[in-house]
Structures are given as structure tokens and as C-alpha cells.
Amino acid sequence: MKILFIIKRPPSDRLFTRDSIDAILTCSVFDQQIALLFMEDGVLQLTPEADNQELKEQLGLLAMYGVQEVYALRESLVSRQLDQSHFILPTQCIDHRQAGQLIASHDTVFHF
């Protein structure tokens, strides 16, 4: 089953970022195919400047859990003047239209 997680919370929302990472790791343990789409303030979770060390460590675990598809919405990066080449995870930049296709191609979308 293909599951997409849409992540919109900034890294400063510690409780919520913990919740989303927990859910992602749990789904991956159950052998589901996982993709992540960071958008709005959620893209800040991918920046090395994010002041949330625990989150950084947990995001670092994702590859070990087999989560390799990581996307960020281009419009969210542009409006925050971010460059994905510095991100802590290898990230593919997509536009709104591609995000729509991404959502349509997954069986379930979790929106955190």
C-alpha cells in the first residue's frame, strides 16, 4: 500500500513533529511504501537551521527505515527563500501540479 504523508507544521511545533515522525516510522515498520511531501512551514523541518535536534536525528533515521521518497513543494521553498541543496535529506522539488499527481498516485494520504 502506498501512503503519502503531507507535513505542514514548522519544526518549532515539537509535539506535532514528534507525532508525525512516529506515524511515519510505524507505517514503514508495517512494510508500507511511504512518501513524504513537505509544504508550507513544514519545509522548514528540512533546513539544517531548524532548532529541533531531536527532529533532525529522527529524520536522519528515515532512510534506514526504507523511506526514500521525499518531496518539497517548490512554491513553499521560493516564498521562504530556501534552497533544497542544503536540506538534511535528499529532497525532490515539485510544483503544485506534480503534487496533485503525487496525491492521486497514493492509496492513502495522511495530513499532519
Binding site: M1, I3, D22, A23, T26, C27, F30, Q32, D107, T108, V109, F110, H111, F112
Partner: peptide, 20 residues
């Protein structure tokens, strides 16, 4: 219960809808 129930719900449902 635990987060496994969330994955289980997604697997056994036609639609899983988040209210945030």
C-alpha cells in the same frame, strides 16, 4: 492503543480521512 492501529486502519479502509 498504539500507532499500529493507524496503519491497520489505513490498510483496511477504502478512505482514511484526517481532520486537522
Amino acid at each position: 492503543s498504539g500507532l499500529g492501529q493507524l496503519t491497520d486502519a489505513a490498510i483496511h479502509s477504502d478512505r482514511t480521512i484526517t481532520f486537522r
